[in-house]
């Protein structure tokens, strides 16, 4: 689909508004959307947001290495390319297998949150591995934190510190 304003680039921002019960749609490319002052995050519905994120991600991949999108999950066989098309994952393991690719999508659809807060099911509470998983995660984050401080990336450091706070 072509952008309605410049009529050259592909439209990746899809706006739907319901005014007085009338539905209006507009389709813009990222550039024109920005020029129009459209705040992408606040205007898109969830699914639209996700598919535009995935599409944007795909674009950078085409330029960079395509290895990532060819990697398949050993459990279900899904690739990131397929995920980008369907917007649903193939199995619970995918969150580990494609951790780096998914982080972006999760962060943007979940208001920058990356750590669960809330219910823990009975079977996970009883599982001693779950406790270890938590400890491993804390160690890993502490490592990342000291690296971030070393690089003087304080924005990242603050983010990691928040994640640590949630875990501890």
């Amino acid at each position: 689909m072509q952008c309605e304003i410049c009529k050259t680039k592909t439209a990746t921002v899809h706006l739907t508004e319901i005014i007085n019960g009338q539905r209006t749609e507009s389709h813009l490319c990222q550039n024109c959307a920005q020029k129009e002052g459209v705040s992408v995050k606040s205007q898109l519905s969830l699914n639209e947001l996700l598919s535009s994120l995935i599409a944007a991600h795909q674009h950078t991949d085409e330029i960079g290495d395509s290895e990532i999108s060819k990697k398949a999950c050993p459990e279900c066989g899904i690739t990131m390319e397929q995920f980008r098309k369907q917007a649903v994952l193939g199995c619970p393991k995918d969150y580990d297998v494609f951790e780096d690719d998914l982080k972006d999508v999760i962060e943007k659809t979940q208001d920058n949150n990356l750590t669960h807060k809330g219910k823990i099911p009975a079977k996970a509470q009883a599982d001693p591995n779950a406790q270890n998983e938590n400890r491993d995660k804390i160690e890993e984050l502490q490592k990342q934190l000291s690296q971030a401080v070393k690089k003087e990336d304080y924005e990242l450091a603050a983010k990691i510190r928040d994640q640590l706070k949630d875990l501890q």
Binding site: V88, T109, L114, H116, K119, P121
Partner: peptide, 15 residues
């Protein structure tokens, strides 16, 4: 249930 300490309940769509 499919669950991880980090991400909570694991769902087909990350949303």
């Amino acid at each position: 249930y499919a669950f991880s300490r980090r991400y909570g309940f694991l769902t087909a769509c990350p949303t």
